[in-house]
C-alpha cells in the first residue's frame, strides 16, 4: 500500500442535491477520473471555512482523498492511495 501526498488544485463536477455534496467526476493533470464510489465523508473547520473531505474510489480503482473549501469553493486533491 502506498500513500502519496498530492495537494493539487483540481476541477470537480459534483452533485449538490438534497443538502449534501457528492463528487462525480474530477480532472487531474488534464485527465478525467470518474468517481466510482464515495467511501466516506467528514467535515472539519479552518477559521470560518467548512472543509468537506471525501474519500473516493475512482474508476481506475485508486483511492483519493479530496476536499472542498466552503469559503472559496475550491477543490483540492490531498492524497492518493494505491495498492502496491
Amino acid at each position: 500500500m502506498l500513500v502519496e501526498r498530492l495537494d493539487e488544485k483540481i476541477k470537480v463536477r459534483a452533485d449538490f442535491g438534497g443538502g449534501t455534496v457528492k463528487p462525480l467526476v474530477f480532472m487531474r493533470r488534464g485527465q478525467i477520473h470518474r468517481v466510482a464510489k464515495v467511501n466516506c465523508y467528514w467535515m472539519d473547520r479552518e477559521g470560518t471555512a467548512k472543509i468537506h473531505y471525501f474519500s473516493v474510489t475512482s474508476d481506475s480503482g485508486d483511492v483519493y482523498q479530496m476536499h472542498l473549501n466552503s469559503d472559496d469553493l475550491t477543490w483540492q486533491l490531498d492524497l492518493v492511495m494505491v495498492e502496491s
Partner: peptide, 8 residues
Amino acid sequence: QVRFPHLK
C-alpha cells in the same frame, strides 16, 4: 479502513 477501503 473506511477512508482507504484497500485496508478492509
